[in-house]
Design a protein around this nucleic acid. Structure first.
Length: 293
DNA sequence: TGCCAGGCCTTCC
DNA sequence: GGAAGGCATGGC
């Protein structure tokens, strides 16, 4: 089924899907293809209309409104963020249509366990390999897609099998997450009813889930917009703009973010991360001999 | 060839 | 409590 969704406010499909929030989207001649919430999708964007096509999702428009955070007034959000300070204002102006995705909690948990000490292209490959080996095959006209494996299925994987997929030392972390989630020891549905701080503590009981991974799950999988994941890029950006150089403790950075960005912290983080990383990569890709004017 | 990547865990002090 | 070192792997 295909549905068109009229999007109000800034919307940047490319930036959103390549921003490192989700790892199962690929560019396609007609837009983007990928798997989310157990369904394959073809997405295209033209003149304020998001076209959402899926062979299995019964309400692709409704799915898109939730997934792409379309109920949030990004015009007002961007204006609020621009008033905060120069760094956030610059990041917002760089890609105002960058959306904060709302993924399934399990997808965010699995992907961000794989993200530790890793890079985005490789995270994407690893999520796909794990899906290919343990996920359910989905029917789609032009592509073969595999859903993310359920926690109960992934719980049957051995450490050796996961290592064969290239996940390295993260193999036992994935198994622990799958076992705890499938047994109900960590109830991802119940996390919805907890405060952000309480949910963070529960998530950090999973091996391989520290403060940063937990915050990513909270922000991208549970829509906790007060969560503020601090990775190497964000740490660098905060230190260079708000603090006096390197060596600032993570705890101090979290306290600063909470007081500076309050309930919009997650949005601010998303803009800051995308701007900092994209700008840095662009500089890296300059040809040899390139000099700034 | 060495550094780095959306960090975390263990050990040691 | 905080610092240091190790960890799998592959792109650049």
């Amino acid at each position: 089924m295909r549905q068109d969704v009229i999007v109000g406010g800034p919307f940047d499909l490319d930036a959103t899907l390549e921003s490192g929030q989700a790892f199962r989207w690929e560019r396609h001649t007609r837009g983007w293809v990928g798997v989310a919430s157990g369904h394959p999708f073809l997405l295209s964007w033209k003149q304020g209309v998001l076209s959402v096509d899926s062979p299995s999702c019964e309400n692709p428009g409704g799915w898109a409104r939730r997934y792409f955070d379309l109920e949030t007034d990004y015009q007002a959000l961007c204006e609020r963020l621009r008033c905060l300070d120069a760094a956030v204002s610059t990041a917002v102006d760089f890609a105002p249509g960058l959306r904060l995705l709302r993924q399934e909690p399990w997808e965010a948990l699995l992907a961000f366990i794989l993200s530790t000490n890793n890079n985005i292209p490789r995270i994407r490959r690893l999520v796909n390999r794990v899906s290919l080996r343990w996920g359910e095959r989905l029917s789609a006209a032009e592509h073969c897609w595999w859903a993310l494996p359920s926690p109960s299925v992934l719980a049957t994987a051995t450490e050796q099998q996961l290592r064969e997929c290239g996940v390295g030392y993260r193999a036992p972390f994935l198994i622990d997450a799958a076992r705890k989630v499938s047994s109900g020891d960590v109830d991802l549905v119940r996390l919805e009813s907890l405060t952000t701080a309480e949910a963070r503590i529960v998530l950090q009981r999973i091996k391989g889930v520290g403060r940063k991974v937990a915050d990513c799950v909270l922000l991208f999988g549970l829509a906790r917009r007060d969560a503020f994941p601090i990775d190497v890029w964000i740490k660098r950006r905060l230190e260079e703009h708000y603090f006096d150089g390197q060596g600032t403790r993570i705890k101090a950075l979290h306290e600063f973010a909470a007081s500076q960005f309050t309930d919009d912290a997650g949005y601010a983080q998303n803009y800051l991360f995308y701007h900092t990383r994209t700008a840095s990569m662009a500089i890296r890709k300059k040809p040899r001999g390139w000099q700034p004017r």
